[in-house]
Design a protein around this nucleic acid. Sequence first.
DNA 1: TATAAACACGAAAACGTTTTCGAAAGTTAA
DNA 2: TTAACTTTCGAAAACGTTTTCGTGTTTATA
Lengths: 340, 340
Amino acid sequence: MKPRITLKNIAKEFGVSISTVSKALKGSHEISEETRERIQAYADYYNYKPNSLALQLRSQKTSVIGVIIPEIVHHFFSTVINGIEQYANERGYNVMICLSNESYEKEVSNISMLTNGSVDGLIVSIARETQENQIYKHFDALIKDDFPLVLFDRVVDSIKCDKVIIDDIGGAIKATDHLIEIGSKRIALLTTQDYISVGSLRKEGYIKSLIKNGIKVDENLIYKIDDKRDLYEQIKKVINVKNPPDAILAVNEIYAAIASKISKERGLVIPNDIAIIGFTSGLISEFTSPSLTSVMQHGALMGKQAAELLINRIEHKGVDEDYQKEVISPNLKIRESTKR
Amino acid sequence: MKPRITLKNIAKEFGVSISTVSKALKGSHEISEETRERIQAYADYYNYKPNSLALQLRSQKTSVIGVIIPEIVHHFFSTVINGIEQYANERGYNVMICLSNESYEKEVSNISMLTNGSVDGLIVSIARETQENQIYKHFDALIKDDFPLVLFDRVVDSIKCDKVIIDDIGGAIKATDHLIEIGSKRIALLTTQDYISVGSLRKEGYIKSLIKNGIKVDENLIYKIDDKRDLYEQIKKVINVKNPPDAILAVNEIYAAIASKISKERGLVIPNDIAIIGFTSGLISEFTSPSLTSVMQHGALMGKQAAELLINRIEHKGVDEDYQKEVISPNLKIRESTKR
DNA sequence: TATAAACACGAAAACGTTTTCGAAAGTTAA
DNA sequence: TTAACTTTCGAAAACGTTTTCGTGTTTATA
């Protein structure tokens, strides 16, 4: 790579000082018009661009925000990043992305790398392993130093910072209410292991709705799917039984899609024999047939809000208002799988 | 945010010079064991981390690679980024992501931003608008400065740099061959406008396979879908006709999924009446029913290879070997939609 | 004509680090 | 006792900027 041209190069070329060149290129009135124009022309010709590292070092500001997510090959996280990137750009920030791969170790090392001066703030969704072990001291260290931090989606109450989350309880209530409205009596819940915060919140909403509607909660209809084992086998045990449920609420799109496939294979008609709703973050629900009613998660909006909170926090350095918690309400996209 | 602790702070604390502190923390033998241990303990206690901006400025190396992609909410690009990130991390690099949103302007400004010293090299997939207008001077400028650059997927021959691409022609041939093998006679092609390079390459493979198998190419079976108009309407015109094709090759997953839906709505049985194959980059094909046979694109592998080419180029600064072009062969994942 | 103001520029510090070179002590050997 | 080494540290340059504070020259004013 050819070395880039610097102020020093230009200064030597014209036999002037570095400060003169700097001022000339910034259009300072301190420099005579003649000198300024000559320097400007030369700089243009050689495509001078100020070295951003030097600027960052001097100004103690990088205009970069770091994002740490569990994985990127996941439609929900892609949409969040999209939201972050769009908004950050508008405010003059760039985005640096790191993946924790759901690993505690990697999350810690990512945070350590990014907070050595390369970013002005951090947006994080916590790794599964971290939530499992409930070790949050790497976050507490950030808080102690007042490092700008925003958590989204997978958050933890004990970490004192700005947060943006989805109203998972409300979303699950909406979905369950809808299933009940269309006449479902035995609604199965496909959820995750308890330590996944969103899974247990959605379960909470499901239960609330049942109680509100005077339906007895049947623990046998609540299935905790283990992501590390075969999903088909686990979900078959829900549907391929003598007396299958007449509706399913799945806490993510994959579970819902698999439930749909298995139902059809067993000869059940959707939505008449069995209605299906999934929390969604992708395109599958839209393109399967029948298309699946979904609780829409608004990832892009989430990203935008997270970026907004973070940048505000970065730029109002002095002010330390209370930490904010933005709650995004998911809405129900009704499709064929619940149109009885 | 609390100001971070620096060498200067520590030096003042112990009444020694900055260089002594620096050496002590690097375990230099020049420093007495006693001094070294005291300084180390203090630094540990206050969680000293060298400011990476200062290091980067001094070493003229950022260990960051920039990635510019058309959009991130697209499974294919997510997998590529995943591949890039994994490999880059192994080699000690971080990843900075920018989106061009298919816009020429944004691509230019992204390149300009990233090449001002904030990254050591660039991995790019060219924006649609850029390919449409065929203006590549922003890339030529990079080449002229020997700036490390790797293009992937959407590449342009005239830009002289390392590239990694998918063998789109071969993939389309494999798919078409397979459709012919299972007895298809009238194979429709759902492709994109001509200026999209991958679209026209896949069309080329489709035609080659037909010719090879002695089937006459029927231009009326080649449909150029316009992404800016309603996809359902356009694809309906392919299937909802008196004499529909008995097989469909779609150049992406969405087209394939829509074709599948419309076929079922029209009462056609997949794969008996109509077989379907799509180039894939997502999960839809796997979870619809029937599941769709796909040409698998191996995005993660692509990302890994792109990162490998780039980092090698960055690190062998002096050596300028010829530019490499890696070609990845897609393979056919046979699913229900072609099992006659 | 003397003084003040305006103009055009340079020196140097600052951001935080690494590294080369030199130098003052202390130690060893002859 | 003297010469040669070793040990332990500091000064300063370098990376590329911006910005404050001079300073010398010219022009305007009284």
